[in-house]
Amino acid sequence: MATSVERRVEPVVRRRFLPTIDVQGIGFAATLASICLLIIILMGIFAPLIATHDPILMDPTQRLKPASNAFLLGTDAYGRDLFSRIVYGARISLIVGVGAAIISVAIGLPLGLLAGFFRILDAILMRIMDGLMAIPSILLAIAVVSLAGASLWTVLVAITIPEIPRVVRLVRSVVLSAREEPYVEAAIAVGSSLPKVMWRHLVPNTLAPLIVQGTYICASAILIEAILSFLGAGVGTETPSWGNIMSEGRVYFQLKPSLIFWPGLVLSICILSINLLGDTARDLLDPRLKQRGGEK
């Protein structure tokens, strides 16, 4: 009897009956979001080819022109082509978004792993993170930019700092719950070293939530960059960024709303697309939903 093989597949008892996800619905939104995002990315990469004018060339004779064949979306108060400025603006937003996501994960992941595994470090690290979380991220970014001067690099640092505590907390909480898993104890019992246990059994658990968190950070970084530029604390005013365009357009808002409307629209679509992809990733990677897949 001991060698008899159980061929029968035991139906897994589901403690909670999870509703089936509407794959079709998610598929549509996610597809649309991917297409929008792809367009924006291509726009950024091939900006010199797509733009019809030099985005920083001022022409006092062409101030605040309406949309026409020459100027697809019209011109701003300095006679610069709005369309070309928006095309170039994608570069700043994408660099800031992707950069902030990568840097904050690269710093937050090791810190979170350490905090999750070593109690003493945990106490100290989490106090520091709590403190950082208490500072409203815009104010923190403003302080950094106003001290270190406006540049893309400063803005990136300023936006990344407040995101790090969120990554650290996330990784830490995943590690704390994963290390209670019997398979981690089993790994310790078969003599695996601490780094091996972390790398093989804990880090993979953080991957899925980090991908999701990374997309959210990307979206929020783009948003904050736009706000900083809007407030005059962003990348230098000479750089065309969506926030800068809107900031300069404020004065003429009642006269020419399109100066805020177009960059605002592109910005919103960009952030919306990233957020939707994040939601989709979360639904797909949700461990509870994943278990359902494993049942088959």
Binding site: P182, Y183, E185, A186, A187
Partner: peptide, 9 residues
């Protein structure tokens, strides 16, 4: 371990 669902990674 008790629960074979959780003791294997």
């Amino acid at each position: 371990f008790q629960d074979p669902n959780r003791s294997l990674n």
